[in-house]
Design a protein around this nucleic acid. Sequence first.
DNA 1: GTCGTGACTAGCC
DNA 2: CGGCTAGCCACGA
Length: 108
Amino acid sequence: MDNESRDLTEFERKVLRVLRRVPGGKVTTYGELARAAGKPGAARAVGNALNKNPAAPHVPCHRVVLSDGRLGGYAGGIKKKIALLGGEGVTVKSGHIADFRQKFYRFG
DNA sequence: GTCGTGACTAGCC
DNA sequence: CGGCTAGCCACGA
């Protein structure tokens, strides 16, 4: 078992763990992430988990966006999120992901 | 045990 | 395209 993230609840660490399997250049949504964590519909709870646990580079929290393709938010600053995504090949235009459907990563 | 909060989502106008 | 409403969940006080 991983002794990391021991101050977090089962749900929180599960979210972080699943999020870690999202490859660079791709993005996922809070809803999909929640579903992958075993709690479909807990998109909001996922947002809270990420915001309260900025596990930094260890977890690609910057690859999580809204279901409609918009960025959403970022504990380190939305600007940083855009920069990180851009560095991975994800283009952000006017606050929304370019070809969101195409960059969207589905868990399987 | 109840209430308020938030990096959400889908539907409707 | 924009804005509003209602429903959803987990956590801390």
